[in-house]
Simulated assay, not measured.
Amino acid sequence: MLDHLDDAEWPGLFHALGSADDTPRHLTALLGDDLKAFTAAYSHLWSTTLRHEGKAWPATAPTALRVAELLDEPRPAPADPSLPDGLLAYLYAVGLAADLGDRAAEIRARVEDRASELRAWTDEYLAADPEGRSRMRQDGTGLGELVLDQAALACFDLAPTLLRRVLPHLASDRAMRRACAAAAAGSPARHPAASVQRPTISRQLTSMARSAECPYERATILIALGHLGGDTRSWLADPHKGVRTCAALAPGLAGDGAADRLLRELARSPGEFAESFGDMAPPLQLRFEPYLRRSREAG
């Protein structure tokens, strides 16, 4: 039960509201039966430990590690079977912050060169009031931005662990769980440490997409598959409009005539795309990342 909760130096980390010394309490509340505390804790995850633009605070990586541990923790009755889905969605958002690609090495070098300055800046930031913290983020030294780059690097380094925690949920007996797990696995599977696993994960996602009866699940899996460089071409002819469009968003299909036609249709009627999923919102990834940029370019 959150065995490593005390391993992080929470008071020395910060999130959107300042010191992260309140985050362990919220994480523990996610396992409790106090509905008010649980609601506040879930809100804390999304509104406080993640930056609105899909990037990381220094508290994000240690929070994500504990969230990954929570995936398999039982909760007191009445258990909410959708909680792991929400936690996987959170890990998807962290994965976006972690997806640094070639920037990781350059950030690591800069962070190592200025480690003592970054620690001093962080200590001063934690001691400041909200107005002072706002000034510090715009002080012109570049240290604030580098501290946030350091936070993203911590997420990058955590990505292989997140992937290991997420992968078992691809075999869940719940369609929504499988869809959220597919989304959450996408970015961590792009980490260099996952290069050996990536073909196996792509094959698993392909198999899942072929057997998925729910269009939402199929579309979400296809976005993840495309993100990993998998082949989504055969789904351009799927009978469901939303699935066809999500298949067309694969970066590997950029410039493909059939895919571009689907994206031009999307640009003309985005509402029709959303409505194709009925009462469900469009796939998880489309709520976080500008996948629709290709639709504007194609239009």
Rank of each mutant, 00 (worst) to 15 (best):
A247I: 06
R119C: 01
A224I: 10
R218L: 03
S172L: 05
S172M: 05
Q138D: 08
V147R: 12
R293I: 14
D231M: 06
S269V: 02
Q204T: 14
H169L: 12
A93R: 15
R203E: 11
E53M: 01
L162V: 13
P84K: 14
E217Y: 08
E131I: 03
L284Y: 09
A209H: 09
D102H: 05
L263F: 07
G257Q: 10
A41S: 09
R66N: 07
G230K: 13
D260E: 15
L249R: 08
L65G: 02
Y125L: 03
P160T: 10
L146V: 02
R165W: 01
P239R: 03
E53P: 01
A248V: 12
R51M: 08
L31K: 06
S116L: 15
A212L: 11
D80M: 12
L170D: 02
A115D: 07
L65H: 04
Y216E: 11
R25Q: 10
T49Q: 13
D123I: 04
D238W: 09
P215R: 07
Y125G: 00
F156C: 03
R174C: 02
T49W: 02
D260R: 15
Y291M: 09
H52Y: 02
D7T: 09
L253K: 08
R190H: 00
S43C: 10
L253W: 07
D22P: 00
P76Y: 11
T232K: 09
R293N: 14
Y42N: 02
T122D: 05
R75E: 05
G12V: 04
L262F: 09
Q197E: 12
P188Y: 01
G299S: 13
D21A: 01
S43F: 10
A219M: 11
T49E: 08
G230S: 02
T23C: 05
D123R: 15
L158Q: 03
A115R: 15
A250G: 11
E213Y: 06
G101M: 03
T23W: 08
L31D: 00
T49K: 07
E131H: 08
A29E: 06
R133Q: 11
L27K: 12
P282C: 04
A29I: 14
D173R: 15
F277S: 07
D99A: 13
P215S: 06
A20S: 11
R296T: 12
C180P: 00
G18V: 03
F273L: 03
G257T: 13
H26R: 11
I107S: 01
A194I: 06
R110C: 01
S211T: 14
A16C: 04
G132K: 15
V243H: 13
R51P: 02
L17I: 05
P283Q: 10
D7V: 10
R108K: 12
D6N: 14
E9H: 12
P283T: 08
H240E: 11
D260K: 13
A258R: 12
S187Q: 05
H44Q: 11
K55P: 00
R119T: 11
P84D: 07
D123G: 07
R108H: 04
R177D: 12
L153P: 01
A259K: 12
R244A: 13
E73R: 12
P130G: 00
R25F: 08
P24D: 04
Y42D: 04
P239A: 10
D99Y: 05
E117H: 06
L65I: 03
P168M: 09
Y90F: 07
R178W: 04
E213L: 15
A219H: 08
R203K: 13
A274Y: 11
A152V: 02
